[in-house]
Design a protein around this nucleic acid. Sequence first.
DNA 1: CCTTGCCTAGGTAATGTTGCGAATTTCGCC
DNA 2: GGCGAAATTCGCAACATTACCTAGGCAAGG
Lengths: 214, 214
Amino acid sequence: MTQPAPSGEPETAAPVLALVDDDDDIRSSLSRALRLRGFEVETFASAAAFLGTDMPLRFDCLILDYGMPGMNGLELQCELNARGAAPPIVFITGHGGVPESVQAMKGGAIDFLEKPFRQPVLIERIQAACEIAAERRLRNAADRALAERFSRLTAREMEIVERMIESPSESSSKEVGRHLGISPRTVDHHRARILEKLGVRSVAELIDLARQRG
Amino acid sequence: MTQPAPSGEPETAAPVLALVDDDDDIRSSLSRALRLRGFEVETFASAAAFLGTDMPLRFDCLILDYGMPGMNGLELQCELNARGAAPPIVFITGHGGVPESVQAMKGGAIDFLEKPFRQPVLIERIQAACEIAAERRLRNAADRALAERFSRLTAREMEIVERMIESPSESSSKEVGRHLGISPRTVDHHRARILEKLGVRSVAELIDLARQRG
DNA sequence: CCTTGCCTAGGTAATGTTGCGAATTTCGCC
DNA sequence: GGCGAAATTCGCAACATTACCTAGGCAAGG
């Protein structure tokens, strides 16, 4: 397995980067340098080409040229944000100024470098961005796993869970049952299923888990 | 608890701004314009002068010149961040470039404008920053209120709370007592005090509250 | 010395939880 | 339409946990 070896550390896997730049020289030289550093790089000559891929979400980090013909980097960032997918972005720009960089940063960009840049600097910034990406991905994975567990609950069970989250102090079977117009014993049964399905062993853990999800 | 929020002044009224700039003209003209827009403004000719005030935290928003003799705006931002107090900052700069703006934004700045700026634009940005400030203050107030309630707990009570948070599934008196080497009765007593002091009515609420705090 | 606050604990009554068992309804499928 | 699986509903009784009242030992401070 190719190891990125960013600082001699054994990473879990090679970070996958997307390099979007209309400059052929930049694409070839930068991607080569990045591959030498252990990254996996895919290049795109335009924002449209990038959006045209079936899965723009699979990248750990985007290296995005700001000034491109057609859709520029900032517009691409806005488009991605609008789609709800906001991967860590490192901008590189030839003619951008302060307003552009500020807007990009406000839009959630991780970094913003001017051309000409020194490759070691850029690579170091990308490394940092990938670390942030890794954290985000971990959290996203955890969230999805959590949502998946909750999706196993039936409608009634979900209703009971929501009731419990809403007012934890009244999450006893008696209270919940009274509120839903059913017997406390039934709530007992449902709650047992809920705890079993979610893999928790107490109401406190359930509340805790449900709070993390929203 | 020193200030029970006197109910005579509407808190929502005038955002209090700090304007730190070594340029006399900027200070006078900008502060005048801001006051006309309903802001309360205090001006400082240097970062040192600002830090010299007894309370640099009372401002809703900082308008900070980046290039100043002595400590510059970015250093002041770092200093404030190091002190744990990070008020919303809007930078204005005469000679700063992209790297400076990026670093400022990374440091938590709300905005970054270049001189010469058009006053309406700056004021609009400051307005936006103040809204963010208001949100932050609300959250901070809630956090402090929470911390204040927790500070009323004794050492032993805190220990029990931490034990409960750590493993909610084993937060029964029996388990906690066994873990701490004391009788379940004693844990009962402590827990009753805890619930009373924190104003919650169940262990679930306690866990929920404690999780919000950290 | 007395008061105050904290930690400790027992006993009893109330409350909540769980296991065993079972009826009715709903839903997808042949 | 019929059939089986899953969901929802519940009672009863045993078990576990918590709440409430009470109270002693201990250290700090007036």
